[in-house]
Design a binder for these strands. Sequence first.
DNA 1: GTCTATACGTTGATAGAC
DNA 2: GTCTATCAACGTATAGAC
Lengths: 204, 204
Amino acid sequence: MKDQKELVREINERKIIEAAEQVFARYGFKGATTDQISKQSGLPKANIHYYFKTKANLYHQVLAGILNEWMESAQAFDNQEEPKQALTQYVESKMEFSRKRPFASKVWANEMLHGAPVVSEFLETTLKNWLDDRVQVIQNWVESGKINSVDPMVFIYMIWSVTQHYADFERQIVLLNHGKEFTDEEFSEKTQQVVNLILTSVGV
Amino acid sequence: MKDQKELVREINERKIIEAAEQVFARYGFKGATTDQISKQSGLPKANIHYYFKTKANLYHQVLAGILNEWMESAQAFDNQEEPKQALTQYVESKMEFSRKRPFASKVWANEMLHGAPVVSEFLETTLKNWLDDRVQVIQNWVESGKINSVDPMVFIYMIWSVTQHYADFERQIVLLNHGKEFTDEEFSEKTQQVVNLILTSVGV
DNA sequence: GTCTATACGTTGATAGAC
DNA sequence: GTCTATCAACGTATAGAC
């Protein structure tokens, strides 16, 4: 059984991580201040340090949570055998992630942009392994004539960049759309367009 | 005639702007320090302030330079009438920009990621106008049956995101490539793959 | 576990000699 | 125009009362 203190700890840690993710997304690691995170979370600044010791450690934990979600969405690639179904499901899953978790995507993009100082090891191991498997899947599709001949890495990077663009460059997209955000319906239409472009690009 | 002092000023301002672009790309606006910029430029810190007054002003000027280049590369879209030539030239031009000016691309991406606090006005005016014209060109291609039916904005965002990915996510790409950077030849092959995918995606 | 007050380091910016 | 020395502001982190 969890006692009350553990429960309080869990709730507060979650509040702080959610607040931190937003503030890191908006201002970057250095640009974010513990004061902003405390105000966003509704808890006093000293408590941030009580629960997470340092700002750097808090950032690590925010990224760890994002990595988990990243890998979950990656599994959408595997639930189908045929390229059309697998790719459709994967692209839709990536677009949904951009829609639902724009802060997470931005924190990730920011980390990459600045040289992945924290997640390098994850990229070289877990993600590299995931990628090698997927490259093989795509290679098999090519060899069995199910999709056009294509460099699998270039193709995967296209999927990543196009889908993540809707989160990371959200502000640019809004400003180029008369300052209006997409409705759910509009975003759903954009998603279908993206799926079509990606499927067509490899002849599916 | 320029006297010697003006010449010194020009040379030093250029040195500082180039240094600043690199440091801002690596660490973001807040993460970059004037001390790092001074060391990178080879000039003492006080001179940064002598020439540019404030760090914020220096950042503005770095972005202004990038905007100019952005628009220049944008013109590659107009030099050809037919979709195949126009798109090929534009995508190659964007890929070349990512290759030659990765720091510029990263500073731009960082600015977008954090809500475009400095370049919002440019986006809403100059870039919006450019975009509207290009949307019309693509719409005409669709209506004359030269390319598949497609949402022009989705298509343009695909071109932007895919090409810029090679600069902005450079570190991720290197880490997923056994830590090896692309040679010029490899990058040229990737460029051709990207061109093919984008042309094929709209049936060209 | 919560929170106020504060110490300490870092960094943007300037003064003033050359 | 150049550069060293220094200041003032800010932000992380902690001490210690409750």
